[in-house]
Structures are given as C-alpha cells and as structure tokens.
Simulated assay, not measured.
Amino acid sequence: MTIRVVVADDQELVRSGFALILDLEEGTEVVAEVADGAAAVAAVREHRADVALLDIRMPGMDGIEACRAITEAGGCRCVMLTTFDSDAYVYDALHAGASGFLLKDVRRDDLVHAVRVVAAGDSLLAPSVARRLVAEYVSRPAPGPPAARLDVLTARERETLFHLAHGRSNAEIAAELTVSEHTVKTHVGHVLAKLGLRDRIQAVICAYETGLVSPPGTR
C-alpha cells in the first residue's frame, strides 16, 4: 500500500527536497507540497493523506495548529519538522498530537524510515531527537512522588514507562529489564491502554507530567 504524504514548509528548498526524496522511494507518494498550515490541513483532507510533514513555524496557521486540526479530524498522523536549537514550541506540538519529530538536516534514510514508522501507527522517538526535545520543553513537574495516575500500573509497567521516557527502544528496554522484546511490547501496550494514551510520545509526556522522571537540572 502506498503511503500518501503531504509536505508543509514555507522554505521551498526544504519542502522540495523532502518531497523529491519521498517520491523517489518505493511505497511513498507526495500528494501535495504546501507552504503554510491552513493549506496543509486542506491538502490532507483533499488527498486523504496518511502522513503530514509539518514545519513547526510557518506563516498564518503554524505547524502546531495544523497538527491539532489534522489529528482531531483523524486518519492522518503528523511528523513535525524542527530546527532544534531555535524552536521553542515542541511541548505544544506534543500536546497537539504530533507522532514524531525530525530535524531539518535529517538523513535521507531516516526521513523515509520516519514516514513508514508513523504511517504504521507507531511514533518516532529516536534518542538523538526526542530525548533532548522532551527534556528541554516538557514543563517541570512538581516535587514529590509520581502522581496517583500511575497507580494503575504494575511495577514492571512503571519501569517500562520510565525507560520509554528516556527514549529507549524496545530492544534497549529488553536488555535493561532482562526480558524479551515481545514482553516489552506487551508491557508498552498495557501502559498505553491503562493510561489512555495514543502512543509512545504521549507516554513520555505522561512520565514527565506525573513526576516519574524529571528533566535534567531538577530533583
């Protein structure tokens, strides 16, 4: 099945470059290239896109508002394009429903991989990107033990959530807990179901907001 992609970025060279890479890849098709959030929302609706690549900062409707509108409508998942050193809106994008983040200098293979992962219903939490983003922009939790919201989790599920919040893959979590990757996948599924979360990125937000983990520099 072909993955239908909308690319939204007000920088033409960035937009065209991403579109060219994805169009040349078997199994992906760029159905629209647009320069602002409103056009992205319209293109997703018109072309029934599976994935939208959205620059966080665009004129008019920005990527965050576009992401919120797209995810609320359902049927399409969003990956945010960011220049990490200058964007200060990542937390808002997470809450708007973003399923992942890519730096604009992303490698060709990583771009294609991200689109496929997100289209398959997973989220993109590469340690090199997501861990830094969350640590910088997630609001600092109040001091004290994790919130009662986590009481529904078993001890092992709580451990799994802790490792998710540090950007670890299923394989890395399996090594930490000395269990199989299949078992980790089961634990992750239980965490998401019990806490009413959509994906791993929302699990990371929950871990920070409840105080299970804290950004660097906090106690």
Score class of each variant (00 low, 15 high):
F84K: 06
E136K: 14
A40T: 00
A73V: 11
V118Q: 03
R116E: 06
A39I: 02
T82F: 07
V134E: 08
S86Y: 11
A98W: 06
A130M: 14
K104M: 06
A135I: 10
V115T: 04
A35Q: 10
A38N: 09
L53M: 04
A88Q: 15
E46M: 05
L111R: 02
D122L: 07
E72L: 15
R68M: 12
L54I: 01
A98S: 11
G97L: 12
E46Q: 11
G97W: 11
V41M: 02
V90S: 12
H95T: 15
V112G: 03
R108H: 11
A43S: 05
R77K: 14
Y91F: 14
C76T: 14
R48V: 06
V115Q: 02
D50G: 06
R132W: 14
H113I: 09
D87N: 15
M80C: 09
D122S: 10
R68K: 15
G60T: 08
M80I: 07
D92S: 13
G63F: 04
C78I: 07
S123F: 01
S128A: 15
R108P: 05
L81S: 10
V41L: 00
A114Y: 00
R68P: 10
A69G: 06
R107G: 13
D105C: 05
L81V: 10
G37L: 01
V134A: 14
C76R: 08
E72Q: 15
R132C: 14
A119W: 03
I64K: 03
A66H: 03
V134Q: 06
C76P: 09
V79E: 02
S128Y: 12
M61C: 04
D122A: 09
K104F: 06
